[in-house]
Write a protein that binds this DNA or RNA. Structure first.
Lengths: 228, 228
DNA sequence: TCTATCCTTTGATCTAAGTCAAGGTGTATC
DNA sequence: GATACACCTTGACTTAGATCAAAGGATAGA
């Protein structure tokens, strides 16, 4: 598969004329990152943005004591690292490839030129950023206003509705990473999972498998109507 | 002062030709909200965005138990409620006028038409959203990875650098609202303020006045090098 | 000035969740 | 199959911060 095909397959660039896809091939930087490799660090200067072609990337913050808060996971077709492109300054968080990943990098200036000529591209970009704001709003709400069981329930419901489409969930990340996404630590997550299993809300079958037994119960936990 | 002058003074619309300012006057809805009045609620359908002309607005989430997390305060010249314009769906949070405010509302469709013809406007909008993402990233980091004294210190430093420009700070919000912005409650904030005063980091002079005595100490608290 | 209301502070108590430490389980490697 | 290592779980303990309750202050309207 050619570079231009990958570019044409990126949702952000749908609706862009082929000639612009061709322009993009001339500016793109095609990179492979190994598992665990840092793509950029919090505070680095950013002069372009990234798109995941294959693999997976996590965006996160780290406290001085080493606690990690994951902000996003991004997979194929998703972009990241765009904040400094439009707002200037530095990356506001770290990006790490959590598996072997192919990443396209688009340098800022050439991209801005293309956006100037393509209102549809800027509207797509505005949509991407707006969705991200929505996600962040939910994350802040979760961390600040819900307890860990509520956040976990919300995540399980989300998984079953948007990913697996069934009540038998396969976690695509380790429990340690899930803890960090939920703003807690593995020990706490582990305890809450077993409490939820004891209460017959879920059933833990094997390492990364969770079965939802009582979807309503989870919804009540997530909304705060009920406590564990 | 005429509506068009207010529009020309909005930072987002700088760099836009006068004819577009005139177009905007034909679509704008000029509204006054009293102190405490709700502008929109979490979940409402949004078909336009708002700009503060005068007064002040808070954007916030509420938990089922009534605890509030403030996401932003916006003052003159700043826009809010733009997420549904580009991402569709509903407002992700509540907006309330915390003092008598004059607000301009710009309906979605007419605005999108103007953006299509004005790359500079879309770049400005992208910059606004990107800055907002950066703010959210910092808020998530604060709530998730710092303790309350660290968040408070960061806020005081921010105030002294971006608002007052001196070590004698005048809070422009009540302490209760500040607590909610920091993701805590008034009692906790009050205790921490007095502890910081006891440690000679700050001096509390009168209701909304705080004097910074030890800026370095605050910076250490904010970065987590030091604990209260 | 008096009174009602709101905001703030302080104290006593409780609890969710973090820390520390020790095992356990699974998977990959030699 | 045995060794290693990363991941996960469980237990005992600690703690930041929330909750509950009550009392000061400030502010504004009558």
């Amino acid at each position: 598969m050619d570079i231009i095909d990958h570019i044409a397959a990126i949702p952000l660039f749908q609706g862009l004329l082929k000639e612009y896809h061709e322009d993009l091939t001339t500016i793109v930087v095609d990179q492979i990152f190994r598992r665990g490799q840092i793509i950029f660090s919090d505070g680095d200067e950013g002069n372009g943005f990234y798109v995941v072609i294959s693999g997976r990337v996590k965006i996160f913050k780290v406290s001085p004591e080493g606690k990690e808060q994951i902000l996003h996971f991004f997979g194929p077709g998703e972009l990241f690292g765009e904040v400094p492109v439009f707002a200037g300054e530095h990356f506001p968080a770290h990006a790490e490839s959590i598996e072997e990943s192919r990443i396209f990098f688009f340098p800022r200036d050439a991209f801005i030129d293309i956006i100037r000529e393509n209102p549809s591209l800027s509207l797509s970009m505005l949509a991407v950023l707006s969705r991200r704001l929505r996600t962040f709003t939910m994350l802040i709400e979760d961390i600040s206003l819900k307890e860990v069981p509520g956040r976990l329930s919300a995540y399980l419901i989300y998984l079953s509705e948007h990913k697996d489409g069934t009540d038998d969930l396969i976690l695509d990340i380790s429990k340690g990473q899930l803890a960090s996404l939920l703003g807690t630590i593995p020990e706490t997550l582990s305890r809450i999972l077993s409490r939820m299993a004891r209460e017959k809300l879920i059933c833990l079958d094997g390492p990364r498998c969770i079965q939802i037994l009582d979807r309503n119960g989870l919804l009540e936990l997530a909304s705060g109507e009920r406590r564990l």
